[in-house]
Design a protein around this nucleic acid. Structure first.
Lengths: 173, 173
DNA sequence: TCGAAAAATGAATAAAAATTCCTAAAATAA
DNA sequence: TTATTTTAGGAATTTTTATTCATTTTTCGA
């Protein structure tokens, strides 16, 4: 808290005027950003697009948001998986709930894609998990790396793997 | 440390006979398990199999290992992404290096698959990242959930998404 | 069985870090 | 301008938790 106060050019005690305590401060920051990306994705979902384009546009949205907020995502990624916090009380729970809401929206998009015949008949929740998994992995790699490339440039690769798979067509019976 | 000692039925001080300190204890445990799975995967890579079967068998190996060590992976998953530790010193670094070695092996398998024509021509590193991403996502979901299903049962789904993608064939031009 | 060496113990210590709270500064109203 | 309320500051306090170390217990060879 001393260090945060110093960097923010505040007195240590002043932090406690704005936040209940350390955890509250921490989760307020997380929540603010999560709220922001949630709103953006929500707006995108409002548009009437074919499922595949919808997924593509959500993907672009996310990648560019992450690229613009790289320091935040360094924290968020580790947070999302940190059970110590997540489990303990409702502060962490809120973040987890927003992530679940996101998965649910994705699942719904997948369901529409299946209904419309654009996507294979498969559990839409599994599809959603597969998708976020691929995305997370590229995001994680990008954050860890010395960032010599643009994250957004991976969008096409992600789409290709997720929609078309990596197996060569000529091996298909 | 007091709590660990209590649960392990040791005196607090005794822990310091076996470990340098808290971090050393922690990473020793992580390292032990990571070593174990690394050995198993290494043995599997030694076998002479076609790339796709190879990936399938590594996947099965991993999923059943994770299923058998669920409490450990609860910790490991959050660890792998926790920059606070990872960055700080060489204890955490060791774990990260072993993960990278795993990615490198996967990349090599992908490369062979491309050379043999079974897999599409695509950056093999991207392929490797896509694969671990999908796997991680299902593992994460399984660990978080009340575990009403077997993790190993997701193997086929993972293989399908990764190799064949989710787009319905009939939409392909 | 005895005695020396090794191992275990946990209360005491030290270090780190969160929170409080009293004082000082700033803002606002009369 | 002065009085009053509100906000900021940071040293002091409290809490937490890792580590130490003097003491006890166990082990094991003679």
């Amino acid at each position: 808290m001393d260090e945060i106060a110093k960097r923010a050019e505040f007195g240590t005690g002043s932090l406690y005027k704005y936040f209940q305590g350390k955890r509250d401060l921490y989760f307020s920051l997380i929540d603010e950003k999560v709220e922001e990306i949630t709103r953006l994705v929500g707006a995108e979902l409002g548009k009437d697009l074919p499922p595949i384009d919808r997924i593509a546009s959500i993907l672009h949205l996310q990648l560019s948001f992450i690229q613009k907020n790289r320091d935040f995502f360094k924290i968020y990624i580790s947070e999302r998986n940190c059970f110590q916090w997540t489990m303990k009380d409702d502060l962490g729970n809120g973040v987890h709930e927003k992530f679940m809401a996101y998965i649910n929206s994705l699942e719904e998009v997948m369901r529409q894609g299946i209904a419309g015949g654009e996507l294979k008949v498969m559990d839409p929740r599994d599809m959603a998990h597969g998708f976020v998994g691929i995305v997370n992995s590229f995001v994680f790699e990008w954050i860890m790396s010395p960032r010599a490339y643009s994250l957004a440039s991976k969008a096409q690769t992600i789409m290709n793997i997720f929609f078309k798979g990596v197996r060569s067509p000529r091996t298909r019976r």
